[in-house]
Write a protein that binds this DNA or RNA. Structure first.
Length: 680
DNA sequence: CATTTGGTAAACAGCC
DNA sequence: TGGCTGTTTACCAAAT
């Protein structure tokens, strides 16, 4: 019995192979629509799809964040109250333990939070459904916990009776007390660490942790976070957990940023990675690292104290000030049986939540792996840009192993590169003009753009039914160049289109005709008779010839170049959104990879991811960090020299993806689907 | 405003 | 016969 847990899918494949098929459906099927719409008349539809893509990505993220937040709080409460070794617990004479119900209540999602969520109108029904599912799951855990607790209590009482008969041994007690002390000290350290972390989160404005309840990260997310914020958030998500586990080892906080920018200067991280800071008030006063926040800065902040109330589970005693709270803490919640029991329960709660978090993380990773990693694979992406890549690399990535630098457009490195403006602009534009936008973008500046851009935004176009802003010629060329042999049959080209672009999973007759038309029309596509029929290849020189005219004079481009310097600056809202959509997944992937301590489940997934990335990197060899099409182009513009195919694209046409191993070589899933008959 | 370029539609031929 | 492949023409729209 298998059940797909992807988002709100309800399908229940009965075999793994079935499940895989189904999964592929997730990646491939645009979901919904069968209406045959004229290509140029579905602007709104496309926009809707785009938005959907946004929210789904955001949601995955949000859910995780919620879970983590809960966990964090629970852990804090638990840790501050002090732990005891299980052994000790067993021997601990248990009195009647009045554990409050409140304590037994893992903070699922409170009604207020639910309301908050509902108010975020970006949540789709599916997302809500998932939330509800999670809620239910948590409640289930709650029940289990309660049962567990009952049993525990019975057991303890039994023990108590026994011990009353046997009497106590003071010596043993003393020993245990010493243990406890040491343990508590250790815990205090951990707690401080956590506190710093929380504070930093709060400072960044990413989390509005309110004393009463876990913050709901959905809010900032829903209100249009910029990629950087997401990056940051993700960083927190992935690193917090590990930071909590590995006491004091802050290296885990090295996120993608650090990895990408410089492994030696984590403190610069947020500055660099937050080029958008100026656009966002919240981030402008950005506090770089949580490590830098000393506990002393907030002497009166205590996880168990907030708004003048003791936050000890089930306590809620009012404490005028921090001092009185401390008194209260020491007197009421001293190391006694009651506290111990409460702590134990809290521990259970945390464990359960941790479990849940792990599961959700796993699920998320699986989803990401499915949606992203797989897509990175067949990318031989010709590298048009040695020039730029060398620049960028030397600036940013040189210290770190270049192979470990899967870059996305919003990567911190991007801003560093002086002249760059690229994919985001291009794609952005395309996204807003989605519908009828045709051609030009890619080809205008010659292939490099399209190659890199296609590759770069693969993931996006793969899942969002947005018309790619590339000409058929560019796409065909890309398809062919990506193939190991640099040649494809017509059918293989078709397959590439459907595989890489959700958009081309519809209206097959139309675009297939266009593909054929282009193949025949352009001299750059050469038909080669093969043993098994005919294959198509690309005549790079011819392809370049197509657009001999120079772009150097293009005002818009110059403008781009100028603004590009401020790659980091303030993209307008639309732009942000667009790039967010494009980059979110790559971002996640990158981030998760940068985090060495995701936990047990992580290692496996990470391996997988790493594998994929390595693969990608190896394929791209000298790929520029950002794989930015514009970067690719820039050298040309800057030099304002006539396009020399050799120079502009030398590596491009020559780079072979030796080890390129497309998973889907023979997927015919979308071929000529009946759905497609319905055009015109 | 003319030209170029790209997208779409369609007719057609050859082949399997 | 029908589908696929490939070529070609026509038309339109956008960009130049």
């Amino acid at each position: 019995m298998f059940q797909c847990v992807f988002s709100s899918s309800v399908l229940q494949p009965h075999s793994t192979s079935c499940l895989f098929k189904h999964l592929f459906y997730h990646s491939a099927t645009p979901a919904s629509q069968k209406q045959p719409e004229p290509i140029y008349s579905k602007k709104t539809e496309i926009q809707r799809q785009t938005v959907r893509a946004h929210s789904v990505k955001l949601f995955i993220f949000s859910a995780l964040q919620v879970a983590r937040q809960l966990l964090l709080q629970q852990q804090q409460q638990q840790q501050v109250s002090g732990l005891k070794s299980p052994k000790r617990n067993d021997k601990q004479p248990a009195l009647q333990v009045p554990v409050s119900v409140a304590m037994m209540t893992p903070q699922v999602i409170t009604p207020q939070q639910m309301q908050q969520i509902l108010q975020q109108q970006v949540l789709s029904p599916q997302q809500l459904q998932v939330l509800l599912q999670q809620q239910q799951a948590l409640m289930l855990q709650q029940q289990q916990l309660q049962e567990f607790y009952k049993k525990q209590q019975e057991q303890l009482q039994l023990q108590l009776l026994q011990q009353q008969h046997a009497g106590k041994q003071p010596k043993e007690q003393q020993q245990v007390a010493t243990q406890q002390l040491a343990f508590q000290q250790q815990l205090l350290q951990m707690q401080q660490l956590q506190q710093q972390h929380l504070l930093s989160l709060q400072r960044q404005g990413l989390l509005t942790i309110q004393p009463g309840q876990p913050a709901l990260p959905l809010q900032p997310l829903a209100q249009g976070m910029i990629p950087t914020e997401l990056q940051q958030l993700w960083k927190e998500v992935t690193s917090a957990h590990s930071a909590e586990e590995t006491t004091g080892s802050n290296h885990s906080s090295l996120d993608l940023t650090t990895t990408c920018v410089s492994s030696s200067a984590p403190s610069k991280t947020s500055l660099i990675m937050n080029p958008h800071a100026s656009t966002n008030g919240q981030l402008s006063v950005h506090t770089p690292k949580r490590e830098s926040l000393s506990h002393e800065e907030h002497p009166h902040s205590h996880p168990l104290y907030g708004h003048g109330v003791c936050k000890w589970p089930g306590c809620e005693a009012v404490c005028e000030d921090f001092q009185s709270f401390l008194k209260h803490l020491n007197s009421e919640h001293a190391l006694d049986d009651r506290s111990t029991a409460q702590c134990r329960v809290q521990m259970q709660v945390v464990q359960q939540l941790e479990l849940q978090l792990a599961k959700d993380k796993e699920r998320l990773q699986a989803m990401m792996t499915h949606l992203h990693v797989k897509s990175t694979e067949p990318k031989a992406a010709p590298q048009p840009l040695n020039l730029v890549s060398s620049v960028t690399l030397s600036k940013s990535a040189s210290e770190a192993s270049p192979q470990s630098l899967p870059h996305t457009p919003t990567t911190p490195t991007a801003p560093i590169t002086p002249v760059t403006q690229g994919p985001s602009v291009i794609t952005t534009t395309s996204m807003h003009t989605v519908g009828p936008i045709r051609r030009r973008y890619s080809d205008k500046y010659n292939v490099p753009i399209s190659s890199a851009d296609i590759a770069q935004n693969q993931e996006f176009y793969k899942n969002a039914e947005v018309r790619p802003p590339f000409t058929y010629a560019s796409l065909i060329r890309q398809a062919i160049l990506e193939s190991p042999e640099k040649q494809l049959t017509l059918n293989e080209i078709y397959n590439w289109f459907t595989r890489m672009f959700a958009y081309f999973r519809r209206n097959a007759a139309t675009w297939k005709n266009a593909v054929r038309h282009n193949l025949s029309l352009h001299k750059c596509f050469v038909r080669v008779e093969n043993v098994k029929g005919a294959v198509w290849t690309v005549d790079e020189v011819e392809f370049q010839k197509r657009r001999p005219q120079k772009i150097s004079g293009n005002p818009s481009l110059i403008k781009n170049m100028q603004t590009s310097h401020a790659y980091c600056t303030p993209l307008n809202a639309a732009l942000q959104q667009a790039s967010m959509a494009e980059n979110s997944i790559p971002l996640y992937t990158t981030a998760s990879m940068g985090n060495p301590t995701l936990g047990n489940l992580a290692s496996a997934i990470r391996e997988e991811l790493n594998g994929a990335m390595e693969h990608t990197n190896s394929n791209e060899s000298d790929s520029s960090p950002g794989r930015s099409p514009l970067q690719a182009v820039h050298p040309v513009h800057v030099k304002e020299e006539p396009l020399d195919p050799e120079e502009a694209e030398g590596p491009l046409s020559l780079v072979t993806t030796a080890n390129h191993s497309p998973d889907f070589d023979h997927d015919r899933d979308y071929e000529d689907e009946p759905v497609n008959e319905d055009m015109e």
